[in-house]
Amino acid sequence: MIWGVLQFPGSCDERDALHACEVVGGEARLIWHEERDLGGVDAVVVPGGFSYGDYLRAGAIARFSPAMEAVAAHAAAGGPVLGICNGFQVLCEAGLLPGALLRNADLRFVCRQADLLVVDGPKTGLSDGFSAHQRLSIPVKHGEGRYYAPEEMLDALEARGQVAYRYAEGHNPNGSVRDIAGVRNEAGNVVGLMPHPEHAVDPLTGSTDGRAVFKALERAAA
């Protein structure tokens, strides 16, 4: 298993993502944003941070990077992709995932532990292997994490099993519509979420529940 972790100018969680991949198992490599070739990796992680400074909109510029073109091709071929926080925003801006992320409802940056519920998905989805309604304790840290999509799109996403993670009751940190913390594409091979599973893989930092999110990606690559 070879993992590729993208690195944009302004990424800040790529080292933790590399570490998380290695903890789950296999070799993990950084992929600089100017690379046009992913180098034959089995799965791609688009990490958190502030790609290109997030100056226009979070993730809006990163989606035009050469590496993201390669990620789009990898995703189109069925390759697994996990977007975390800013990576989730990048995947939404790139049109690889539905919806968008708005400024938190209370306009404040939030940084705390949150409980997530794993939502049942299609059999091909990256949630395979989780027990139904499994609860994960994973940190959130973002200023623009309020998931938004129009009502009819939300109904369609739910009907197709594209909601991957929801915040548990009382844990929605940002006003995300329908408590949505993460979504997947229709094929199920691209998943994005605002919480940071890469910060929850070591007992030293509290929870190790984040490993399950990476393991799901590993299974999807197998």
Partner: peptide, 9 residues
């Protein structure tokens, strides 16, 4: 295509 995200802006 770039300056606005028509879904939210």
């Amino acid at each position: 295509k770039l300056l606005a995200n028509p879904l939210i802006e």
